[in-house]
Simulated assay, not measured.
Amino acid sequence: MPITLGPSTIASQFWCEMAVDLRRKYGEVSTPEKEMGSEIHKDRFLEVLEEIVVEIKTPGDRLHSNVHNMKVGLELYQKEGLTRELPILAKFDSALIMGIIDEIKEIEEIEIQGKERIKTKKTQIVEMKTRRSLNPPSSQQILRDKMQGMIYWYGLNMMINKQTEMGDFWQVYGVDLIENDFNELILSEEYMESLEIKKEKQKEYGTLLSIGNMINDTLKTISKLPELSKHIEIIYIHQKTLTEVHREKYKFDERFFTRGMKWALEYWSGKREPSSVGEFNNWKCNFCSYYTVCPTIHKKWKE
Rank of each mutant, 00 (worst) to 15 (best):
R84H: 04
H41E: 14
C285M: 07
E189A: 12
F45S: 01
M147G: 07
V175E: 04
S269L: 07
E116Y: 13
K230S: 13
E111Q: 15
I112H: 14
K284T: 00
W170I: 00
E189R: 13
L156M: 13
P295F: 13
K121L: 10
N286I: 14
D176N: 15
E193L: 10
M192Q: 04
E28G: 00
E273I: 07
T207K: 07
T221N: 15
R272S: 05
A11N: 04
E50G: 06
S223Q: 04
K115I: 06
W15S: 10
M18F: 06
K240F: 03
I88F: 02
P7S: 14
L209N: 02
N282L: 04
M214E: 11
I118L: 11
I110K: 09
K299Q: 12
W283C: 01
G155Y: 00
F169C: 06
I235S: 11
D176F: 15
E184Q: 11
K79V: 04
F182R: 02
G155F: 01
M36I: 14
I186T: 11
V54A: 11
P2W: 09
I88K: 01
N281L: 14
A11S: 12
N69A: 06
R247P: 10
K198I: 10
W15M: 09
K198P: 05
T83E: 06
L22M: 04
K121G: 04
F169R: 11
M158I: 05
E303M: 09
I222A: 03
F256H: 10
R23K: 13
D21M: 02
T243N: 11
T292F: 00
R131I: 14
L187A: 03
F287R: 01
E111M: 09
E55S: 02
L219P: 02
K91S: 07
I104N: 06
S139Q: 08
E50Y: 14
L195V: 04
K302H: 04
